[in-house]
């Protein structure tokens, strides 16, 4: 992604709540037409980060910039959309009324029919929000977040409470929006959601970025096998072998992480046939994320 396409950034961001750090020295760039997924366990700082970017929370230090405007300014708000976690909506308004109201907030709203189509609400325009299921409520909140034709869309846990079918159609809507030029920042618990949508993934732990990269890069770094063996050699010796991403030594054991198990193992054994206690262990994606955010 080129620098010119950057539409928003945070730099050296810090935020703590009564002394307890929630976001630590965080850098972040959002580019045009990019889907950025922020992953992390509960309390990792995802929602705090989103709220700072939306200007709903003040930050202690660092810079936040959206479209050359201050986070939370009217100018920024008109260019973004936000889907936040909400327990309930006012029950006595209909879906179409909620959408009409939110459209009126923006200078150039997205056409009504288009909002309905993206959110898959065509058949329930006249339903009161009281009568909606959890997943339908999420779809309405999604509709409200795109009413303004946003250039940057924040989705906080968008598919919570959705069944598989609605989740798939929301993912499709996110892809369509991206194709139409909208940048999307989403937080999620679902690895699969980030995997199938995101161009870049940011893994947060205790308010810090512990891993960032494209979905492929993250996979390459985590979807590897660990070859462990006993050796007196230095860990660095093994760095040149096939597909090796990381080598480390703890005690007598050396752990070589590789994306190409068989080649790497063959090469190592061909060169050092005296290794003892060799084990090979494959880490799944889910497991690897757990490992990274431990």
């Amino acid at each position: 992604m080129s620098q010119q396409n950057m539409i928003a950034f945070a730099k050296g961001l810090n935020k703590s709540f009564s002394g307890k750090p929630a976001v630590v020295d965080l850098d972040l760039e959002i580019h045009a037409g990019q889907v950025l997924a922020i992953l992390g366990a509960n309390g990792a700082g995802k929602t705090t980060l989103i709220n700072i970017l939306l200007g709903r929370l003040s930050h202690d230090s660092g810079d936040v910039n959206l479209f050359n405007a201050k986070a939370g300014s009217l100018e920024a708000k008109r260019l973004i959309g936000a889907m936040l976690q909400v327990a309930n909506l006012p029950e006595t308004l209909k879906i179409k009324e909620h959408i009409r109201l939110f459209q009126s907030y923006y200078p150039n709203p997205m056409p009504y029919e288009k909002v309905l189509a993206y959110a898959g609400l065509e058949k329930m325009q006249n339903r009161y929000s009281k009568k909606l299921s959890g997943g339908e409520k999420q779809r309405l909140l999604f509709a409200l977040s795109i009413c303004g034709n946003p250039k940057l869309l924040f989705l906080d846990e968008p598919s919570v409470g959705m069944d598989m079918e609605s989740r798939q159609s929301m993912w499709q809507a996110i892809r369509d929006l991206k194709r139409a030029g909208t940048s999307i920042v989403l937080t999620t618990h679902y690895l699969q959601e980030a995997d199938s949508l995101a161009d870049e993934i940011l893994l947060l732990k205790d308010g810090k970025v512990v891993k960032r990269g494209s979905s492929e890069e993250i996979k390459a770094s985590v979807n590897h096998t660990s070859i462990r063996f006993c050796s007196d050699l230095d860990a660095a010796v093994f760095e040149g072998f096939e597909g090796v991403v990381n080598c480390s030594k703890s005690g007598k054991y050396i752990e070589v992480q590789t994306s190409n198990t068989s080649q790497c193992l063959q090469q190592i054994l061909a060169q050092y046939s005296d290794l003892e206690d060799v084990t090979v262990e494959r880490a799944g994606l889910e497991e690897a994320f757990k490992q990274l955010s431990q």
Binding site: L54, A87, L89
Partner: peptide, 17 residues
């Protein structure tokens, strides 16, 4: 009540004056 539901958060994130 709307504040407690988080509904006002949605409104405050929108450009509603």
């Amino acid at each position: 009540i709307e504040r407690g539901q988080g509904w006002l958060d949605i409104k405050s994130a929108s450009p509603m004056p």
